[in-house]
Design a protein around this nucleic acid. Sequence first.
DNA 1: AGCCAGGCCCATT
DNA 2: AATGGGCATGGC
Length: 276
Amino acid sequence: MIIKDNQKIYIRDEYFDPTAVCTCGQVFRYKKVDNNWIVCSLDKKATIKELDGQFVIEGDSDYFYDYFDLGNDYEKIVEEVSDKPLIGDALKLGKGIRILKQDPFETVIEFIISANNLIPRIKGIIERICINLGENKGDYYSFPTIEKMASVAKDFYTKLGCGYRDEYLSKTARAICDGKFDLGLPFKQDTETAKKYLMTLTGVGPKVADCILLFAYQKYDVFPVDTWIKKLYFRLFPSANPKTQPKTMRSDLVSLYGKYAGIAQQYLFYSIRENK
DNA sequence: AGCCAGGCCCATT
DNA sequence: AATGGGCATGGC
C-alpha cells in the first residue's frame, strides 16, 4: 500500500526496499545516515525513514513518487521474470528493487564516469563534481546544470580525478548544451534507435548506453553487460565460446529474460555483488 | 604490490 | 564488422 500526501509518501509494500534500490548499482548519489537512506536527484533530496515496518519518504513527494516509479506494478514484473534462470535466489534478496526514473543528463554523465571504474570511486567523483559545479543546498549539493558542466574546460574534470573520462565529460556536456544532442529524443525512439543515438555521445558505448536506456528512459528490453554479467553469462551458457563478444551476450540475455530483461539484470547484478 | 573495476576510443585488419 | 592495445585513477 502506497499513500502520498503533500509532504510525504508512506509505503508498506514488499516490492520496495530502499537498501536494494540504492545499492543495486543504478544510482550513485545516496548515503546511509543513522538508519535513514538519503538519495539526491538533480537539485532535490529524499530522506527515507523506516517506522514500524513502514517506509516514509520525505522530500518533494510528487517528484519522488515518479522517481521511485511508485505507480508501477512490480508484483507483475517480478511474476513475469520469476521463472527465468538464476532469478529465484536473486529475488529473495532484491525483489524490493525499483528501477528509478532518473534525469537523462545526470544519468548520461554519471554512467560515462562509471566506465571501467569502481563504485566507491564513481560516487566520490560525482560528489566532487556536485560540490565544485553544483549549488549548495545546505546539507547537500545539487547536480550541476548542463550549462555549468559545459562551461568548464576538460582539465577541470582531470583535477577532480576523472582520469581519461575528462574529455568525454566536457565533449558530451558541450554537445548537449549546444543543442547538437537532444536528450528528449530517446523517449520517442524505439530501443535500438535510441541506443545508436546515445552512442553518438563521446564516452557512451554499448554498456553505458544500456544503463542510460534502463535508468533514465524506461527502456526495459536491454541488458547491460559488464565484467560481472560476463561471469553470469558463462554460468548460463557453460559451453559458450570463451571469446563470445559482449554484443552476442546482450542479445542472448535479452532473448532469455524477455521484455523486462533490464529489470531482471538488476536483480541478478545486485545478487551477484551482495554475495561477493 | 599488483590486479582489476558497471568500458570506450581508435587504429588496424 | 571485428579485433586488440592503451588508458587515469585508486579500491581491494
